[in-house]
Amino acid sequence: SEWSLESYIRIPNGQSAPGKPEIMRCRSPEKETFTCWWKPGSDGGLPTNYTLNYYKEGEELINECPDYKTAGPNSCYFNKKHTSLWTIYNITVKATNRMGSSISDPHYVDVTYIVQPDPPMNVIPAVGIQDGKPYLLVKWSPPPLADVRSGWLTLIYELRLKTEGEEWETFLVGQQTQYKIFSLNPGNKYIVQIHCKPDHHGAWSEWSQEKYIQLPSDF
C-alpha cells in the first residue's frame, strides 16, 4: 500500500523542570548573623535559577534572600540587620528553569539553636611548677567573631591532649580560657587542641589547630 501520512514525534532531549532543592544546613558563628546552604536537585539540563524565600514567625511578609554572594554558591547570608533571635524563620528554596519550577521542603530556623562558633585561637601550652609539682598550663582566646566580652555569647571549652600514637584524653574546662593538667608523663611530646560551644545550645566548634609541647624529662 501507500505509505500513511507522515506524523511527527519530538524526541525528548533530556530537558525537564528542575528537581527539588534541599536545604542542607544553617549555621550562625556568633549569634549575630547566619548562613543557609542548599543542595540543588537536577537542573533538568537547562540553566536553572535558585531563589531563597523566607518569612519570620508572626509576619505575613515573604522576603527574598538578602545576600546570595557573601557565603558562596548555593547559599544565603543573613547579615546582622536580617538576623533576629527568638524568632522562627520558615525558609524555602525554589529552583526555576524554562520547563518549570520546584520548591524545597520548608526549613525552620531558630538562630539560637544553630550557633556553631569558630575554633578558639592562640592556643599556647606551657610548663609550670606549683607547690613543687610540675603541670601543663594551656591558655587560649575565644574565636574572634564571638562577642563574649559583652555577655552576648557565653562559651564553654573542652580541651584534648595526647602523646603521639595514643588516644585523646578530653577535659571539660567550663568558661575559663586556661587550664592546668597535672600528672603527665615526663619526656613526652604532647598534642593539645581546644574547641568551644555556646553554654546552652548549638554545636561544638571544630578543634583548634594542633599545638605541640615537649615536656622536660625531669618533669
Binding site: G58, K80, S84, T87, I88, P106, D147, S150, W152
Partner: peptide, 24 residues
C-alpha cells in the same frame, strides 16, 4: 506542631530586644 507554633507567646506584647544591637 512547629509549623503552627508561630501564633506567638503571651509575652509578645512586651517588646524585647531581638538582637545584640537592640539589646545594647
Amino acid at each position: 506542631f512547629i509549623t503552627k507554633a508561630v501564633n506567638g507567646c503571651h509575652t509578645a506584647s512586651l517588646t524585647t530586644p531581638e538582637d545584640k544591637e537592640q539589646a545594647q
